[in-house]
């Protein structure tokens, strides 16, 4: 798994985490690092781009759910962007609605 943490200078607080590859238990620490880094920078919106993900497990989904919960509590925004049908379906099991397209 790989990730890129990006932000827009024009939109303070807006962060995008672009994830690629296989997100299994081995990838969880890296994904956590990306999310923690976004919050440390004061993220109020986090967009997670999963378009290049080929596999995602419950550990990675749990990290996304925790990020979503934290942003909800603070009035922020959390969004998942993904067009990979299998990944979208698995996310849907726990009520994470993925939006098609690019961030």
């Amino acid at each position: 798994m790989s990730y890129i943490l990006g932000h827009s200078a024009a939109t303070p607080g807006w962060y995008v985490i672009t994830v690629g590859g296989e997100c299994d238990m081995n990838a969880a620490p890296s994904l956590s690092v990306a999310v923690v880094a976004a919050f440390r920078h004061g993220a109020s919106t986090i967009v997670v781009d999963l378009n290049e993900v080929t596999f995602i497990d419950s550990t990675a989904i749990g990290i996304l759910l925790a990020a979503r919960e934290r942003l909800r509590r603070s009035g922020g925004t959390f969004e998942v962007v993904c067009s990979v049908p299998a990944v979208v379906r698995v996310l849907g099991i726990v009520g994470v609605e993925a939006v098609a397209g690019v961030p």
Binding site: M25, A28, D57, S58, T59, A60, I61, G62, I63, L65, A66, V90, I93, V94
Partner: peptide, 15 residues
């Protein structure tokens, strides 16, 4: 411990 792993069984049941 990652509490996220506890979700695994529920995911297995769902799929």
């Amino acid at each position: 411990a990652l509490p996220e792993r506890g979700r695994g069984l529920a995911f297995m049941a769902a799929t």
